Deep mutational scan, measured.
Amino acid sequence: VVSQCEHCRQEKLLHEKLRFSGVEKSFCSEGCVLLYKQDF
Rank of each mutant, 00 (worst) to 15 (best):
C5V: 02
V2G: 06
V33I: 00
E6Q: 13
E11D: 12
E6C: 13
K37P: 01
L13K: 12
L18W: 07
Y36S: 04
L14K: 02
L18V: 15
H7E: 04
K25Y: 08
V1E: 11
F27K: 04
F40S: 12
S26R: 09
V23M: 15
E16P: 06
L34H: 10
F20D: 03
Y36V: 05
K37L: 06
V23A: 08
E11P: 11
K17R: 11
R19C: 14
Q38R: 11
Y36R: 07
C28Q: 03
K37F: 04
S21M: 10
C28L: 00
H7M: 09
L18P: 13
C5W: 00
F20Y: 04
F27H: 11
H15D: 13
C32L: 00
H15E: 04
S3T: 13
H15S: 13
C32P: 01
V1A: 07
L13S: 08
E24H: 05
S21E: 13
F20A: 09
R9D: 03
K37E: 04
F40L: 14
F27W: 06
C28I: 12
C5T: 02
C8K: 12
F27N: 07
E16S: 06
E30F: 04
Q10V: 04
R19Q: 11
V1R: 10
R9T: 05
Q4G: 12
L13M: 07
F40T: 15
K37D: 09
G31E: 15
C28K: 03
S29T: 03
C28S: 02
V2P: 12
V1D: 07
L18S: 06
Q10W: 02
G31V: 09
L14R: 02
S21C: 05
E16H: 08
H7T: 01
C5L: 00
K25P: 13
H15L: 07
K17Q: 08
Q10K: 09
L14G: 03
C5P: 00
L13T: 07
L35H: 06
E16A: 09
L35N: 12
V23D: 07
V33Q: 06
K25E: 00
K37R: 04
S3F: 08
E11I: 03
Y36D: 07
F27V: 03
E30T: 09
V2F: 09
E30R: 01
F27C: 13
C8E: 00
E6Y: 05
E24T: 06
H7C: 13
G31Q: 14
Q4I: 15
C8L: 02
Q38V: 01
K17T: 10
E24R: 01
K17N: 06
F20V: 12
V2A: 09
F27Q: 05
V33A: 12
L18T: 05
H15Y: 12
C28Y: 01
E24Q: 05
C5I: 04
E6G: 11
S3A: 09
F27R: 03
Q10Y: 06
F40K: 11
F40P: 14
R19E: 14
L13V: 09
K37C: 14
F40C: 11
L34G: 12
L18K: 01
S29V: 03
V33N: 06
V33M: 14
R9V: 01
L13N: 08
Q4D: 12
L34W: 11
E6L: 08
C8H: 00
E11A: 04
H15M: 11
R19N: 15
E30Y: 08
K25W: 00
G22A: 01
E16F: 14
L34T: 11
Q38T: 07
E30P: 11
Y36H: 13
D39V: 03
R19H: 02
Q4V: 15
C32Q: 05
E16T: 08
G31I: 13
C28T: 01
G31W: 07
Q10T: 06
C28M: 03
C8R: 03
S21G: 13
K37M: 00
S21W: 04
S3M: 11
L14V: 09
C5F: 05
V1G: 10
S3W: 00
E16L: 11
L18G: 10
R19P: 09
Q38A: 10
K37W: 01
C5Q: 00
Q4A: 15
S29A: 10
G31F: 01
E30I: 15
V2L: 05
H15T: 14
E24A: 02
E16D: 04
K17G: 03
S29E: 05
Q38L: 14
K12C: 15
L35D: 14
H15R: 10
K37T: 08
L13G: 04
C5E: 00
Q4C: 14
E6V: 12
C5H: 02
C8A: 01
C32M: 03
Q10A: 02
S26H: 13
Q4H: 15
C28P: 02
D39L: 10
E30S: 10
S3V: 13
H7W: 12
S3P: 03
V23L: 09
G22E: 10
L14M: 10
S26M: 10
C28V: 01
E30V: 09
Q38G: 06
K25G: 01
V1Y: 12
S26G: 04
Y36T: 09
E30C: 11
L18A: 11
K25A: 06
R19F: 14
L14W: 00
C5G: 02
E11T: 08
R9P: 02
L35Q: 15
Q38D: 15
R19V: 13
L35V: 03
H15Q: 03
E16G: 04
V2K: 14
S3E: 05
E6K: 12
L35M: 12
K12P: 00
Q4E: 14
E6M: 02
K37V: 07
G22L: 00
C32A: 03
R9C: 09
V33G: 07
D39R: 14
C32G: 04
V1K: 14
C8W: 05
V33T: 07
S26Q: 02
F27M: 03
G22R: 01
L35P: 06
C28R: 00
V33L: 13
E30A: 08
H15K: 09
G31H: 09
L14H: 03
K25V: 05
K25L: 04
C32Y: 12
L13E: 10
H7Q: 11
E11V: 08
K25M: 13
L34I: 05
H7A: 07
H7S: 08
G22W: 01
E11L: 08
V2S: 07
Y36K: 09
G22P: 00
K12M: 08
Q38M: 05
K17M: 15
F20R: 05
F27P: 04
R9M: 04
E30W: 00
C32V: 02
K12W: 01
F20T: 00
Y36Q: 07
V2N: 14
F40A: 13
S21Q: 08
K37A: 01
V23K: 08
L34D: 11
G31D: 13
K12V: 04
S26D: 06
E24W: 07
V2T: 14
S3N: 09
H15N: 10
C32W: 03
R9F: 05
L14T: 07
Q4W: 14
E16W: 07
G31A: 11
F20Q: 09
L35S: 13
F27S: 06
F40M: 13
S29L: 02
H15P: 11
